[in-house]
């Protein structure tokens, strides 16, 4: 009854000339093509239902005209890099996690791919040249508002950005993912400045709140493959959710993770509790009442909604302590 995912591809005027458009359309040859003057006429219509659209998401190919690179957000960890930036090659994600801020950030459940890749490379090269701390590399997160690796089979941005990084010595990129698509990187020589950052959640969290994602077990297998090949890997236990028995569940999950992964090969670990921009959070709650984790009695500040401060500290303290059994404390970056 429902149309398949990406049954329709909307093409913004002028995108036909970009090579990335051809690559994507070749891979989605059965999709119906619809032309659109400006991608926002589809993506930013008022009154869209994010969750319904997620049941049959469409792809929108567009050109990003400005903001090809952004300064890092305070809600994200910078891992000590002072030249901290991110970009938005894609808007939205193939997955649909209950706690995801994208539901409140974007008006649509459809996905946008910006196909003018050379413009992104030029903007990145310029940012490298003019970075505020020239003695340090530019640290760029390329998979924040999406999951690039999960979508590599259709939009090959991950591999291309890795090659771009290889050519720019002062660039370090982070590719955050929940994907198990390690095969997409099989043919690529590992780059020590391209950090693969896997978000991991215990099975109890993943099965209940991370719709459409590969299981933690599949993710761990993917990480293992990449570690064996020599990729730098970051583990992100973020966001930690305060579910019933959270402490026991997360600690036993850490044990399981490091039973399969050689801890000494892990570059670093990110640990953070659930937090969200208050405006996004408000928008999400207006749309959905089907997820208990969004209805915790949170504490709200002007910059974020999260668990009360005391609970946050308790969670981070206990879980960081548990993680130090496996990895050195100085490699754990926390967000409370």
């Amino acid at each position: 009854m429902w149309h398949k995912r990406f049954s329709h591809v909307y093409l913004e005027e002028g995108v036909e000339k970009y090579p990335m458009t051809r690559v994507i359309l070749d891979r989605l040859s059965n999709s119906k093509l619809v032309t659109v003057k400006n991608y926002k006429d589809v993506f930013a219509r008022s009154g869209q239902n994010f969750q319904l659209q997620k049941r049959s998401p469409k792809l929108i190919l567009a050109r990003k005209k400005d903001h090809l690179i952004y300064e890092g957000s305070m809600a994200s960890q910078d891992f000590g890099y002072r030249n901290f930036y991110y970009n938005s090659l894609l808007l939205n994600c193939v997955y649909n996690c209950d706690y995801c801020y994208l539901q409140g950030m974007y008006p649509s459940g459809n996905m946008v791919v910006f196909v003018n890749e050379d413009d992104f490379y030029r903007a990145t090269a310029k940012a490298i040249d003019y970075r505020p701390f020239p003695q340090e590399p530019l640290y760029l997160c390329i998979s924040y508002d999406t999951d690039l690796l999960a979508y590599e089979s259709v939009v090959p941005y991950t591999s291309r950005f890795i090659e771009f990084t290889r050519e720019h010595e002062d660039l370090v990129i982070e590719i955050r993912t929940k994907s198990a698509n390690w095969r997409a990187l099989e043919e690529i020589v590992p780059c020590d400045r391209a950090i693969l950052a896997w978000t991991l959640s215990p099975p109890e969290v993943a099965s209940a709140y991370e719709q459409l994602t590969p299981s933690p077990e599949q993710r761990i297998q993917a990480i293992k493959q990449c570690l064996d090949r020599g990729w730098p890997v970051r583990l992100c236990f973020d966001p930690v959710l305060r579910i019933d028995n959270w402490e026991k569940i997360y600690i036993s999950f850490f044990k399981e993770v490091f039973k399969h992964l050689p801890a000494e090969k892990i570059r670093d670990v990110s640990l953070g509790v659930f937090r969200m921009n208050p405006d996004y959070f408000k928008r999400i709650k207006k749309q959905r009442t089907d997820s208990d984790i969004l209805y915790y009695p949170f504490e709200s500040s002007p910059s974020f909604v999260s668990y009360p401060a005391e609970e946050r500290s308790q969670m981070i303290e206990k879980l960081k302590d548990a993680l130090t059994k496996y990895v050195p404390a100085e490699t754990i970056e926390t967000w409370t």
Binding site: M1, W2, V36, Q48, Q53
Partner: peptide
């Protein structure tokens, strides 16, 4: 109909195509 183009204003409108 997956796209409506208003000839006089040039504007375009898009119903959601969720159901086959």
């Amino acid at each position: 109909v997956n796209k409506i183009w208003d000839h006089s204003s040039g504007r375009e409108f898009f119903p959601d195509m969720l159901i086959n």
